[in-house]
Design a protein around this nucleic acid. Structure first.
Lengths: 260, 260
DNA sequence: GACTCGCCACTGGTATGACCACTGAAGTAT
DNA sequence: ATACTTCAGTGGTCATACCAGTGGCGAGTC
């Protein structure tokens, strides 16, 4: 019955050969973060594959954020926090027709838990950094573009402080897909003060180690952001399929969790 | 005072040119799911780029699951539910040293919410399919390998039933990275009956539309799976402990009305 | 006539080798 | 000392030839 043995994406022999080789170098520790890998010509020769094949392998790894290629300089192992390709969600969205509310929902879930975890695991340094960003937000309350920088940084620090790089990476992926809309929203926003206040309260909950509260506050914060942003989500009429429809209602319904 | 404008991964002109072109075809609906794109030679000619560049673009999209390349046949737009490259997490794990408990934590959060959403949005058909899998699980209770198939299917159906393809895709990514260990665990498992029972209770909660309960049950189910699996494997840092605590608190908060 | 088998055209995969474009640092002119 | 130029090295692109699976069409067989 289930004859699903065939690999849908066998990624040709050579490519996988290259990928596996590099992966083994990674696992064995022969390659460290930020380190430079041999030049394509040299590497290709040592692996007994053509430069073209070597490149497809490198591109594959680069596409998932494991390698960073810098034209004219070299190819390096990614450093910093784990992160997937930011464009992936956006492109997939184009294909599968992801709706804004779905992105928000995903972000809401991920980020609220991230905040909760941060409340339990954040280091003093991270809390200090968080505090710093809150200060900066209040300072740049009249400069939307500048405010956004600190806003994003604030959330990013929470991600790191959660102690779970996987969740952080997933969150980053979702968030980046929302960046554009987010920027616009902030640009025309008038009351950044309220936003700053919420961030501060979230920070306080984290500092106090109150996970449940941090989570709840983050939910509120994002719910507010959502309503401020996607007032009138435009649903393409021409496109067939009427799957999404009662979704809007559901999104609201699901807030039973915090319900109070 | 310049913000970081530099693109870490500018993905060379040509490549992005190809990617954007295909993406536009996707957005405009010129390319539908499962549809075949022109042959490389032909497509390259029409786009005024070399076949090599066209290929890097295609590989890029294939690497993120948007396209499926079949040697000797052609290249097609992915169909079915949205999903990212399954190997990505595994490879990233090799680089960033992801810990099993982190994967479990991510899965726990995603899947519990997925179950909760399924309780609110699942269609009658999906509930029927869910029921069917539960039956199959009880039927194959003496065949671990077969049981696993239905186990996975059960969770996958829940993902779809959640009505949020993004969360489903993220969950699938995390889960696939756990597949190997999961298979081993099930293989040597003795009491699949208990597992089956839990699945049934989850199903019932979903059928009854009890989101909070479904979420809570799924959490319990996964917690059990975790302990059954990572018995000796990983050090259980204080953080992991905190995670468990967090979950419990979370459950209590959310299901305040009925809970334990 | 129905079936089998193998040829073959078509599609993607790999290999070369030459050349373009970008970067950074060494070297040179001012 | 400074600013400009040169240049070696690295990734990016290209063109071409050939290798390797797929699947259909047709000759051959039963």
């Amino acid at each position: 019955m289930m004859a699903e043995n065939k690999r849908a994406n066998p990624d040709s022999h050579r490519t996988m050969q290259v990928v596996n080789h590099i992966r083994s170098l990674l696992e064995s520790g022969a390659l460290q973060q930020g380190e430079k890998i041999p030049s394509e010509r040299e590497f290709a020769r040592s692996l007994k594959v053509s430069r073209a094949s070597l490149r497809t392998g490198i591109n594959y790894l680069a596409a998932m954020g494991v390698l960073k290629v810098r034209h004219g300089v070299g190819t390096f192992v990614a450093d910093g926090p784990a992160e997937f390709d930011k464009a992936s969600l956006r492109i997939m969205g184009a294909l599968h027709g992801f709706k804004p509310w779905q992105m928000f929902e995903a972000r809401l879930i991920l980020e609220s838990h991230l905040a909760g975890l941060a409340a339990e695991r954040s280091s003093p340094e991270q809390r200090a950094a968080l505090s710093e960003e809150v200060v900066e937000m209040f300072a740049s309350i009249d400069s939307p573009s500048e405010y956004l920088v600190h806003d994003i940084l604030f959330h990013r620090i929470i991600s790191q402080a959660s102690g779970n790089p996987i969740l952080a990476a997933l969150m980053e992926t979702v968030t980046s897909a929302l960046y554009e809309d987010r920027r616009k929203t902030v640009e025309r926003s008038r009351d950044l003060r309220e936003s700053a206040e919420m961030h501060r309260s979230i920070y306080r909950a984290i500092r106090a180690g109150k996970a449940a509260e941090a989570r709840k506050l983050m939910e509120q914060h994002l719910h507010l952001a959502e309503s401020a942003q996607g007032k009138e989500s435009v649903s393409t009429p021409s496109s067939a399929q009427g799957a999404a429809k009662s979704r809007k209602a559901s999104a609201r319904t699901r807030s039973t969790s915090k319900a109070s």
